[in-house]
């Protein structure tokens, strides 16, 4: 995995990161979003989705129903594993089919709750709030070497 580190100081920075990711992802990609409550996982997912042309009004946290589907320039499957008790709960959701279909982009919040069920080629974005600076957060982005097109955005 290649690791990129992006320090965001504002929502604008997070949006830039979302745009940079949206520019290089292709249908079939899976992105794991990992971080504590309030870290900004849904916020980054929203930025990626909006950059891919999804109607902003359609995007919300999927915690309740575990998955939302959006229509953008490619289909987007927005998962949330927060409520999973065990990875086997994913069987009822048919998650493997979504990951394997290759048709769209899978964004997976709380992916660490069922990491072994994600494809090997999944990106992992770990978000850590900076305890010293309000609204500052560090994004650690781990990308398989074959996905070489990604570039970190400039910070505002």
């Amino acid at each position: 995995m290649n690791r990129y580190v992006f320090e965001s100081r504002s929502e604008n920075d997070t949006e830039r990161l979302g745009r940079s990711i949206a520019e290089v992802v292709t249908p079939g990609a899976t992105i794991a979003l990992v971080g504590p409550l309030g870290a900004g996982k849904t916020r980054l997912a929203r930025s990626i989705c909006e950059s891919l042309g999804v109607d902003p009004a359609a995007i919300a946290s999927p915690t309740f129903i575990l998955i939302h589907e959006y229509e953008g320039s490619m289909p987007i499957y927005h998962f949330d594993f927060y409520r999973l008790r065990s990875p086997s709960d994913l069987d009822a959701l048919g998650a493997d089919e979504y990951f394997a279909s290759g048709e769209g982009l899978c964004l997976v919040e709380w992916a660490d709750r069922a990491r072994e069920r994600l494809p090997d080629a999944a990106w992992t974005i770990t978000i850590e709030p900076d305890p010293d600076v309000e609204n500052a957060r560090v994004f650690r982005i781990d990308i398989p070497p074959e996905d070489s097109r990604f570039e970190l955005p400039a910070r505002s």
Binding site: L37, G38, S61, P129, P131, E134
Partner: peptide
């Protein structure tokens, strides 16, 4: 007439982290 609660959740997170900035 929309709602957003994620910023509120994050503000609570910072209150908690702010109690001890050195601690993760």
């Amino acid at each position: 007439l929309d709602f957003s609660f994620s910023g509120l959740k994050t503000a609570v997170l910072y209150t908690l982290k702010g109690q001890d900035a050195r601690s993760r």
